[in-house]
Design a protein around this nucleic acid. Structure first.
Length: 466
DNA sequence: TTTAGGG
DNA sequence: CCCTAAA
């Protein structure tokens, strides 16, 4: 009884702290819930007495270093950075592929890892809970297990709990992540110059991070490796859908036991180009979906992907079966990285609009997941985003006003430029043919039924049947 | 098979 | 992203 009361007390005090810290985070960046989770984690691992300064410090660090990423104030540098990073990722990607061939060696860890993830789902809720004040449990300076083991699985060791926690927080949100990881890797350990309050806890934390890193290098969680190396990383937001599907698969995995996990592992080791950010959790899902899609590829440079296809096909069947039931269409989106977009634009400006296969072959040969169609779709979206298309019946230019990601100016310029040179739907001369001489004649003659294929370029598809 | 367009 | 009709 008494204990409970005391707990409540400390909860409330802690709560105050948390809230304050929250402000620090919320101010510059307006972040979501996950902030709390990470925050609590930091709080906990540093020992309970900690230290808003620490966070502000850590945060500042992150902000100054990564802030440019999100704002479009520094496009060029931004692009550059991302480009470099992308290259990095690509390389890793290739390494991944190599690994995939003899990836069996990683079996055990993978299992463990899956289990970890499994557990993570519990933790994640708990993590969120922390923000509300339940962080007390975790706040005990050295052993963070009490809260965790108490509320979810009694059997989980410290290491698991902490690493998992990190993982989860990382998966949750991009922007936050940048700062958060920064804090974890740099600020927390020592970089931000905050005096280490509790050697032990810090030690633990870094240890855990280490472990995590190791894990990553073995699996596909390259995220952390990158983040620790470059001090920066990109994370994709984990869609609800991702989470759902993953949990589905997780269940499946539990049912099927070893066999399924093997399948997962296999797949996880294969594709995964950019999506490392998902921390390996949803990665398997992604790759398998791509595989399932079985797009037309017969070109030589895509042997690897073919291999993947073959190797994972058998399991895809039963795996996708129960998933595709729910969310039929629009499986998984693979976010376009800025560098990809740039590549695309480059390609278009070089080969012209419509040469999607060429562009794909020449510029995206390494990324097996981008089909020519994807390229085209992306271009279409770019046009739309740049406002270069569809003046919108009312004549309102509707531009990119409130688009989610405003599209960097540098890109915007190029897109518009390209849009001018060759408008996407190819020849946009439908009504009011500006070529006064030829057009009317054709129209009149074509009206009998002859297809206007003799027009300058492609004919504008018209929907007579509409 | 590839492109275009629509959902 | 997915699907389908055209070419």
């Amino acid at each position: 009884m008494n204990e409970v009361k005391e707990d409540e007390l400390s909860v409330s005090t802690l709560e105050d702290e948390t809230i304050e810290v929250e402000h620090l985070f919320a101010e510059p960046k307006n972040e979501h819930v996950s902030v709390d989770g990470v925050l609590s984690f930091g709080d906990e691992s540093l020992g309970k007495c900690l230290h808003i300064e620490d966070f502000s410090c850590g945060f500042d660090y992150g902000l100054t270093n990564n802030g440019g990423l999100d704002s479009n104030t520094t496009q060029e540098g931004d692009d550059l950075q991302l480009d470099v990073l992308d290259g990095l990722l690509d390389e890793i990607d290739e390494v991944d592929d190599l690994d995939a061939t003899n990836g069996l060696s990683n079996a055990c860890e993978c299992e463990d890892f899956l289990l970890d993830i499994e557990f993570a789902e519990n933790v994640i809720k708990l993590d969120l809970g922390l923000s509300k004040g339940s962080c007390v449990g975790n706040s005990s300076s050295e052993s963070q297990s009490p809260g965790l083991s108490g509320s979810s699985n009694g059997a989980v060791g410290i290491s698991e709990s902490s690493s998992v926690t990190i993982l989860e927080s990382e998966c949750k949100n991009d922007a936050l992540n940048k700062t958060a990881t920064c804090k974890l890797h740099g600020g927390l350990v020592s970089k931000c110059g905050c005096p280490p309050p509790d050697e032990d806890s810090i030690h633990d934390t870094s240890l855990e991070l280490r472990k995590l890193d190791d894990l990553n290098s073995d699996k596909n969680l390259i995220v952390c490796g990158i983040s620790s190396a470059g001090g920066e990383k990109r994370l994709r937001k984990q869609t609800r859908r991702y989470i759902e599907e993953f949990s589905d698969k997780k269940l499946e995995y539990m049912k099927r036991g070893e066999k399924y996990s093997a399948g997962m592992r296999r797949r996880a080791l294969t594709v995964i180009p950019e999506e490392k950010s998902l921390g390996g959790i949803s990665v398997p899902a992604v790759s398998q979906f791509r595989a399932r899609r079985g797009r037309p590829k017969k070109q030589k440079q895509e042997i690897e992907s073919d291999k993947e296809l073959v190797s994972s096909e058998s399991e895809d069947d039963h795996v996708t079966k129960n998933i595709s039931k729910k969310h039929d269409r629009r499986k998984h989106q693979r976010m376009w990285t800025p560098s990809e977009v740039i590549k695309l634009v480059d390609g278009i400006s070089e080969y012209g609009v419509g040469r999607w296969t060429d562009i794909k072959r020449l510029l995206f040969s390494t990324s097996a997941y981008r089909t020519p169609i994807d390229l085209r779709d992306k271009w279409r979206n770019l046009l739309r985003a740049s406002g270069a298309q569809k003046p919108n019946k009312k004549g309102v230019e509707q531009k990119q006003e409130h688009s989610l990601r405003p599209l960097p100016n540098s890109l915007l310029r190029r897109v518009l430029e390209l849009a001018k040179i060759h408008p996407y739907p190819r020849v946009r001369i439908s009504k009011n043919l500006c070529v006064g001489q030829v057009a009317p004649a054709i129209v009149s003659s074509a009206s009998k039924g002859a297809p206007p294929s003799s027009l300058g370029g492609r004919t504008v598809r018209r929907k007579n049947y509409n």
